[in-house]
Design a binder for these strands. Structure first.
Length: 261
DNA sequence: ATGGCGCGGTCACCGCGA
């Protein structure tokens, strides 16, 4: 079973990129973020035609939006609202083999890393707090928590730890929340564990760099966390860096894991 | 230290991303 996550930054604009990736990499389940469309306009029949006949879509106009496209059926579907908002940042599915998948789009948090000056940063920290509380309440086994967390948790998840310490995505309050999430949810950061501790690994490169590859100022904002009890079934972990070089790419690239259950 | 680009949409400007 091959599962991937990808912040697509408009699914309508990039449905061809998505299907090319799904076919080439033989993905069974894809979790998308920032689909940026209401459900009525989601190109679902397009994906149905390629065998992704099971889906769970939750979007809104212009912003946010999450979706799961799958070849494998779901036993249950549900979502949760955070911070008293009805924005579309989370969905959850349960498979017949009792694996559950949470797909998250955590708020970006704006520019200023100060909750008193920046309500978006406050929202992000509140979201993380509620996310941890939710995951603490569930059964700890057989879970995957994945998506765009908008947090680069460790030193080698950014191009420069020193120059990003005060930049939203890599500040102490955010990285502390990430560590709390691992601890209180009993998760493994399987992507980081798969690489060497001092390897720089990224899943996002800004659109604003003239040559993203040359400057290589990336951050690891997208994550796949997994319950410790199923860690032993992981067969492979991949970050598809070459996708960033496609025509009209998303600023994020997909990540996948293969589970042999 | 700054700005750089790209998305959707009450569409030549703005909010938002991070």
């Amino acid at each position: 079973m091959k599962i991937a996550t990808w912040n697509i930054n408009s699914v309508r604009l990039r449905k061809e990129n998505v299907i090319n990736f799904l076919k080439k990499e033989s993905i069974d389940i894809l979790c998308l973020q920032e689909t940026k469309t209401v459900d009525e306009n989601f190109p679902i029949t397009f994906f149905n035609d390629y065998g992704y006949i099971h889906s769970y879509i939750r979007g809104e106009k212009s912003y946010n939006g999450v979706a799961i496209l799958s070849k494998i059926p779901f036993k249950n579907k549900s979502f949760h609202n955070f911070c008293n908002l009805n924005d579309t940042r989370h969905i959850k599915v349960e498979l017949r083999n009792n694996i559950t998948i949470h797909n998250f789009y955590v708020p970006a948090g704006g520019d200023i890393a100060d909750i008193n000056l920046n309500p978006k940063f406050k929202h992000k920290l509140q979201f993380m707090e509620e996310m941890i509380n939710l995951l603490k309440k569930e059964k700890f086994k057989n879970r995957l928590v994945l998506g765009d967390f908008n947090i680069a948790p460790f030193e080698n998840d950014v191009w420069s730890h020193k120059s990003l310490l005060n930049v939203v995505s890599h500040t102490k309050p955010e990285t502390n929340y990430f560590s709390k999430l691992l601890k209180y949810g009993a998760f493994e950061d399987i992507v980081r564990n798969h690489f060497k501790r001092d390897d720089k690994i990224y899943s996002w490169w800004s659109y604003r760099n003239k040559d993203w590859k040359k400057s290589n100022r990336g951050r690891r904002l997208d994550h796949i966390l997994i319950s410790k009890n199923i860690q032993k079934y992981i067969q492979s972990v991949k970050i598809y860096k070459s996708i960033r070089d496609e025509k009209k790419p998303s600023d994020h690239v997909p990540i996948s894991i293969t589970l042999k259950l």
